[in-house]
Design a binder for these strands. Structure first.
Length: 274
DNA sequence: ACTGAGCGA
């Protein structure tokens, strides 16, 4: 694979990207940290949790924006249903040189990382570009999700891609009934979209605003998932043209989607007929 | 910007 210059697009309000590493494709040096011999990387046990009072080790991170642990922001995305138990975040879009040490150090300043597990190919042992970061609590994981997701990663010109780990763990086997919602204002979040519908339809399971992969900004449309097909059908007509944030929504049937931000293949759509 | 993104032994 050729090393091509990444887009030098810097977002306003963000720190300028760090200078490129000397050798292209070479991982940054983390000092004397030995490479993990196992697939599981855990912090040393003598490290006390919840070290919010301490300054983060900036020397290692360079341009990482400091997390703001005391700011209790409303959830930008709807937490999973069985939220009490969920302490693990999925992390994706990783580069091959980003190992457990790198990922662990990304969140070490929180003092709340339980373990880091990156997925490798069985034969080659090559990193697959995603993994799982477990935290000491759901609240800790939620803080990291809200604070780091979409922010610059250390030593590289790309942003964190984080989400709740969902696939392997909990399984909601009830079918989903999804609608498409367009014309969304730029500030509409998953949570706002979900609540806009939930106050009228108690069977609303969740909502997702589609964001641009690079900028993490809203693309102006999203999806709302219902548990009850009757409420789905009602919402299609009753909520069309209703305000969400500052703009009237345009509602339509959702095209089929096989992946699982919901419960997989059981995503039923009211695509009436052809 | 108008049909979603990726999930482990």
């Amino acid at each position: 694979m050729m090393q091509q210059p990444p887009p030098s697009q810097t977002q306003p309000g963000m720190a300028p990207p760090p200078p490129p590493q000397g050798a292209a494709g070479q991982p940054p040096q983390w000092g004397a940290i030995p490479p993990p011999m196992t697939h599981q990387y855990a912090p040393p046990p003598q490290q006390p949790p919840a070290m919010w009072g301490q300054p983060p080790p900036q020397a290692h991170y360079g341009q990482v924006p400091p997390p703001q642990p005391y700011y209790a922001a409303p959830p930008a995305m709807a937490a999973p249903a069985a939220a009490d138990e969920v302490k693990t975040l999925w992390i994706g879009d990783l580069q091959a040189w980003m190992d457990e040490n790198y990922i662990y150090n990304c969140f070490a300043a929180t003092g709340e990382v339980q373990s880091v597990k990156l997925i490798r190919d069985k034969q080659s042992g090559q990193l697959q570009g995603y993994g799982f970061v477990e935290f000491i609590s759901h609240a800790a994981a939620d803080r990291v999700l809200q604070t780091y997701n979409g922010q610059m990663m250390p030593n590289v010109e790309m942003v964190f891609r984080l989400n709740w780990a969902s696939a392997g763990e909990k399984r909601d086997d009830t079918p989903d009934y999804t609608i498409f919602v367009g014309d969304l204002a730029a500030d509409v979040t998953d949570y706002l979209l979900q609540e806009t519908f939930r106050v009228h339809y108690p069977s609303v399971k969740g909502a997702k605003v589609v964001t641009d992969k690079m900028t993490m900004r809203s693309k102006g449309y999203g999806f709302v998932k219902f548990g009850d097909p009757t409420e789905q059908a009602r919402a299609m007509t009753e909520m069309n043209g209703m305000l969400c944030s500052s703009r009237p929504m345009r509602i339509g049937p959702a095209a089929n989607k096989k992946t699982t931000w919901g419960s997989g293949e059981s995503t039923k759509c009211s695509r009436s007929s052809v």
